[in-house]
Design a protein around this nucleic acid. Sequence first.
DNA 1: CAGCATCCGCCGTGATACTG
DNA 2: CAGTATCACGGCGGATGCTG
Lengths: 120, 120
Amino acid sequence: MPVDPTCPVCQTAEIICGKWTLLLIRDLAEGHSRFCELERSLQGISPRTLSLRLRALEEEAIVERHTFAEVPPRVEYALTEKGRALLPLIDHMRSYGERWLGGTCANAADEQLPPVAAVA
Amino acid sequence: MPVDPTCPVCQTAEIICGKWTLLLIRDLAEGHSRFCELERSLQGISPRTLSLRLRALEEEAIVERHTFAEVPPRVEYALTEKGRALLPLIDHMRSYGERWLGGTCANAADEQLPPVAAVA
DNA sequence: CAGCATCCGCCGTGATACTG
DNA sequence: CAGTATCACGGCGGATGCTG
């Protein structure tokens, strides 16, 4: 529900604000490409939600879906150029989080000095 | 609802993914500082939601609240340094939106290469 | 393996009215 | 002016079970 559909900031927010979207994109960037693989790496996600997110991102041309007519069935997902263009933004968010929110992540390399004062 | 409270990317997402948060920060950055002023510039927001967002951002030390014991009462809000540090990120989101979402590519699943010329 | 169908609960948001 | 109180709704996401 875009507040302002013509605002590029809001449009971008719409894309990345799904609960699992950012993690999903990150995992895709890291090479996880199959449904079950993503289901594992995104621990706690339901197949329904994963499917919905994947569809939405596919419609937005952020991920590509490649189906293999095999037995057992295989489907692989990958970021498009448009999707990879999101990665610097995610890095930017990580930088902010590390600098100002004191968070560290298994995937993140290093950690910066925490903010001076945090309101309780 | 943080997927991973320790992930800086998720923490940052938590902050900026409120429906009005980005616009609120933008308006604060543009100098709108009073409650009624924000209420006007964020057309459509309810006082309840504005109040809630402001409180949340205050708790996160992203905005500062300055009360003036006057009649009529006056309260001014301003971004802290931590809040202003969000602005480049918002710019980044705007850049992405303009570059990749500026056109009419929302539903085009087959559209892999949006118009490059759309960059302002 | 890769999903879809169904039901359900949560909570963010909106609307409206009221207060200091 | 600057909020708070209350009620209600809608949609996202979770849980579970089933199919090709």
